[in-house]
Amino acid sequence: MIAAIVTIAGLSTVFGLLLGYAAIRFRVEGDPIADQIDALLPQTQCGQCAFAGCRPYAEAIAAGEAEINRCPPGGEATMIALAELLGRDPVPLEDEDAAEKPKAVAYIVEAECIGCTLCIQACPVDAIVGAAKQMHTIIDDECTGCELCLPPCPVECIHMHPIGETIQTWQWPYPKEAAKGATHG
């Protein structure tokens, strides 16, 4: 009887210490799930998910406050990646039409720009250069195509230019699709 109690007590002490040590030794800073989710999001910072950027959306998903289907720029692929990460069932995208839009970058028609700086303030990634009363322009490589600069522009001089496929970004088609296209002309 006593031996049993001592053994159990000893065991629980040992495991308790072990767990306590592990908790300190392998402590994880921050919210790892939110980080992982954030890493999967496309970082367009467009706010189409109704959160103020990708990070807040990631935190909301991690907290279980948001569905995983609210990111149109990420599209189906991001939703599936999120479902896999979180062990949830894939769900249809909330806004299918928005997800099917081709990738684009914003372009300012410089002749029409009045230099009001409103778009500069709206850009979540500082991809617009310019100053008050000076013409503005967009750094193509850094534009995420979020379209947040479109509504503030008082003269509607910002347009979205779809990014065409170039030789550098071209992807070999998946074989089945190629088989369909391979016709004798």
Binding site: D38, L41, P42, Q43, T44, Q45, G53, C54, R55, P124, V125, D126, A127, E142, T144
Partner: peptide, 11 residues
Amino acid sequence: SDLARRRHEAR
């Protein structure tokens, strides 16, 4: 997306 994240965070 890393670049966008960095720039967004910087902003």
